[in-house]
Design a binder for these strands. Structure first.
Lengths: 142, 142
DNA sequence: ATGATACTTGACGTTTACGTAAACGTCAAC
DNA sequence: GTTGACGTTTACGTAAACGTCAAGTATCAT
């Protein structure tokens, strides 16, 4: 009655398994479902997660880490799964994609700048540490 | 009585000038001050911002764009400005710096992955658009 | 059949980051 | 002298993303 190893790929996960694997609470996972980001099957009342659901959760968490709101994450995931019939929809989608890309590029620059500054700070730190350790070789001063 | 051009660098800014330049509300700027991220001088009651204050605001907004909370931004800015006397403090600071860097590196990976997926989605979009425009050369179908 | 354990659905509480409205001061322009 | 633009504080409101009970259901071992 286990789940993570089952010969073929009829693997399924319980909510707590996923929670542990990705280090989030079950509350959070249920919340994502509430917001339309996950649609696990049910065995009676109990939620049953497929590998596909697992990937979806992964995408949600990745999106979160780079600052997307849950609504934005859902928007992106919807893009993936939708086959919109209209040309207008596709144009709109391309616009949205361009937006997102611009955001992400700016974020990359922000991160690079921040990393550089963190490096500067670290250098200063290490210099002070070296100085202090010279002046008082045993331990801390004050 | 202007502010942005003044021969030497005795430049100062009003709150609305900064608000316009960085496209945030004055409310937000005051809020950052409330949380200890800005300390503008005062002319009577009115806030007066130096170029240094402007840089601080810039850092706050950059930090926000990459997902830092205001408290985290302040922590980083405090690192820059503090000359902590104790070795323990410096060690702690180096730990924090390592943490931040790890976070940012992971974020960079997340962004790259997301960009790749956005590209995939875009390719699909364009293929569909091309197909639809062939099938019905005039405009949209339904 | 009886806990123990895991899962479920509400429902209210909390934190963060502001928005919004009230109520007032100040100074230049008309 | 009042109107309007800009500034101030104080205070309450709000959206997002969960946390935290409470109370019930299902299953499994003893």
């Amino acid at each position: 009655m286990n789940s993570t190893m089952d010969a073929s790929d009829q693997t399924t996960y319980t909510i707590t398994e996923l929670a542990k694997e990705f280090d989030v609470t079950t509350r959070a996972i249920r919340f994502y479902e509430d917001r339309g980001l996950l649609k696990p099957a049910r065995n009676g009342l109990t939620r049953v997660y497929t590998p596909r659901d697992r990937v979806h959760l992964k995408l949600v968490l990745r999106g979160k880490r780079i600052g997307f709101s849950l609504d934005e994450v859902r928007e992106i995931m919807d893009m993936y799964n939708s086959a919109p019939g209209e040309i207008g929809q596709l144009d709109y989608m391309l616009d949205k994609l361009a937006e997102r890309r611009a955001m992400l590029h700016r974020q990359q620059q922000d991160i690079e700048l921040t990393l550089k500054e963190l490096n500067k700070i670290e250098v200063q730190c290490r210099q002070r540490l070296a100085m202090m350790r010279k002046q008082s070789p045993q331990s801390q001063i004050s």
